[in-house]
Nucleic acid binder design. Structure first.
Ligand code: NAD
Ligand code: NAD
Lengths: 205, 205
DNA sequence: TTTGAGTTGTGAAAATTATCACAATGTGAG
DNA sequence: CTCACATTGTGATAATTTTCACAACTCAAA
């Protein structure tokens, strides 16, 4: 069945909130609570959970750990995903740090840069290789996903090289709209767009 | 008329691409080209432009600068928007830097932190105040929009304080789903969600 | 002047997405 | 046991969003 992108977004949020509830020791949760935590209406929560095929009980709602696992399975989250990061600048290093504190199943396994001062250094316990070795690294380690945090002017060239080497998904932090083949999935996380959106909804609506 | 959030997202992208085209000296653009640059189908581009009420010509397409202005007006982008940032850490400083290179109409005018070593310092030419003064600052300067880059554990408390002082929109970089009144607009930019989404679309679909 | 190529604008149809409303269900109190 | 209650799951409906398809238009060349 085809699932809408928005549904995927919400499922990921549910999963994270469920994980937190589990950490807090909760064993059950009702759709209203999950709705409140994630910020979506409760009937959407139930509809979404229908999609993943998990059944709760009217008496106890949903089992927190079971539902979390069920969503994870649905999202096909493999046991471990290895990701690389290109561009060990201010933003890149902040992300290297952040990523380790989060989802342990997804980990950044290598960083790449062209600056001689950064190559062969370790930032937040991740080794930085020279950018020239990225193609080999991707092929030899079968990497599917990359994070791009190089300067805007370099972004397209890097993206093309990554795709050529077999990268299938990119998280793009640069303000450039990358031109890649349709089968490569791009997630654009440009802060400026987010900021403009907030300005729009605050001002006008 | 009510405009869908996705439409707003796309309009912001069009605007940015138009700005780039103008910088490159282009004066006209066809829907197909704008579609290619922004990554959306051309009929959606035309439909979106219908919403903003701009008319192109079949012969020359759209006038780049006029259309850019028209979209900006439609988005109600005021001449200048002043934004504050809370949490001058790794990510916060990267954003302070980034924001200055981008849209000159939107500027970060002050940063706030609780760390004595950072207070009263200037990062990327933006002055850092103590967090205790944020409420007064917001009220006295009539600030509507804030960026939150404090540690996750502090995020909710900070958000509540900001809202209490009159903030109407927040760009939230922490992984916490902030609980705020419905009239406050929140844009969540959690990298981890983006990464999980890419993993989903790369793996399964 | 006429034709042809290429584009816009948009009504109408299709597809998708969200909301509503309620029957079905399990629970615990009396 | 029975009843009242709160919650789930889902068919039906409403609303939104996208896609299709083509008439109308502009220009340039013959
Ligand atoms: N999405 C956001 O919120 C956000 C925030 C800040 C910055 N940015 C963007 O992220 C990017 C990086 O920002 P930053 O502040 O970290 O910049 P930076 O200059 O600090 O870092 C860029 C890094 O990329 C490296 N690099 C340059 N060219 C390279 C190449 N061809 N191959 C490999 N490495 C290369 C540089 O050596 C440097 O280490 C920029 O495009 C910026 O616009 C986005
Ligand atoms: N969205 C993303 O892509 C992304 C990436 C990296 C980090 N993050 C998140 O962003 C946040 C910041 O990350 P970071 O790496 O910059 O962390 P950091 O520890 O480097 O910075 C946090 C800053 O907040 C300040 N601070 C703490 N409590 C405060 C308070 N009550 N009031 C004001 N200032 C306070 C600290 O002094 C510090 O300067 C974290 O929540 C992290 O999870 C998000």
């Amino acid at each position: 069945m085809k699932i809408a992108e928005n549904t995927i977004n919400r499922l990921i949020v549910y999963k994270k909130e469920l994980n937190r509830l589990a950490t807090d020791g909760l064993s059950n949760v009702y759709s209203h609570k999950l709705a409140h935590l994630s910020g979506f209406p409760s009937h959407l929560v139930r509809r979404d959970l229908m999609n993943v095929g998990y059944n709760g009980s009217p008496a106890h709602g949903y089992n927190v750990t079971e539902l979390e696992k069920c969503i994870a399975d649905f999202l096909c989250t493999p046991e471990s995903v290895r990701v690389i990061l290109v561009g060990v600048g201010n933003l890149g290093r902040a992300i290297l740090d952040y990523c380790q504190q989060q989802n342990p199943k997804i980990s950044i396994v290598a960083a790449f840069d062209k600056d001689k001062n950064k190559v062969n250094k370790v930032y937040h316990s991740i080794y930085t290789f020279h950018i020239d070795s990225v193609k080999n690294y991707i092929k030899e380690n079968n990497i599917d996903v990359a994070i791009i945090t190089v300067p805007a002017a370099e972004a397209q060239e890097i993206a093309s090289a990554l795709v050529e080497s077999g990268i299938k998904g990119i998280v793009n932090f640069t303000p450039v709209r990358l031109q890649v083949p349709a089968e490569v999935y791009i997630e654009n996380l440009d802060m400026m767009l987010g900021l403009e959106k907030v300005v729009y909804f605050v001002n006008g609506d």
